[in-house]
Amino acid sequence: MTPLLEVAARAFKGTRTPQTMIAAVLAWSVTVAPTAFARGSTPPARIFAVLALIAGLVGPLFLAERRSIGRHIGITAFLALSLGAWLFSLHALHPLRLSPFRAATGSLAWAIFALSWREVWPKPPERTEAEIQAVPLPARANLPALAVPILTAAVLGALFFVLGAFRTRDVERGLVAQAIAIACGAAVVSGASTIATTLGKDRSAGPGRRFTGVVVRALLLLFVIALGGALYILLRT
């Protein structure tokens, strides 16, 4: 037997491999198979779907020992091939044909798939007697006063984006609006968290001045595009 086959054979002795394989089959059977094998689907969609299933089943075999190979096959290849199957069966993915029940089940199946590939953190070593009796270390710094209001505003803004996208009446445009709203929300919350924790920090040990070339270029680009776009919209109307 080749070393790879030996690794795969040993993987079945644990419980993680079968769990991950079942999760991949579940995600595949709920979201990939119904679209790729729907009436009128194209042969490439079916080929991609079968290859995705193979990748989803083979990847977990290397979970225990050749973890990076397993992740490349079981996650990257599985997702890429599933995406290929969806792209070749777009007619079956039309929003009008999507049932809310299948959408909810599919989301749950992919969440289970993601959890099945979780990293198991190593158990920390037992604490010594001295460590148990030691006084907890105080935090070196407190959050800036405006950190909570800034993050709250960002989270509320992100929620507003998603709610605002629900105003869209066209089904196809609605999907795009939701995707853009979620992306904008994630970007705002991420940026606001950086700002909230960085406000008021002493920069003397850092790059020295804050108006670096990157900052000046970003501000200039913002100014030019904001002004140019506003003028263009004004002249058009």
Partner: peptide
């Protein structure tokens, strides 16, 4: 499209202002 681009640029500028990348000119 215009507003989304302006939003992205404003967000990038606000983060860059507070956390400039070291080594930038």
């Amino acid at each position: 499209l215009y507003l989304l681009i302006v939003g992205a640029l404003a967000l990038r500028a606000s983060v860059e202002l507070l956390r400039p990348r070291s080594g930038a000119a």
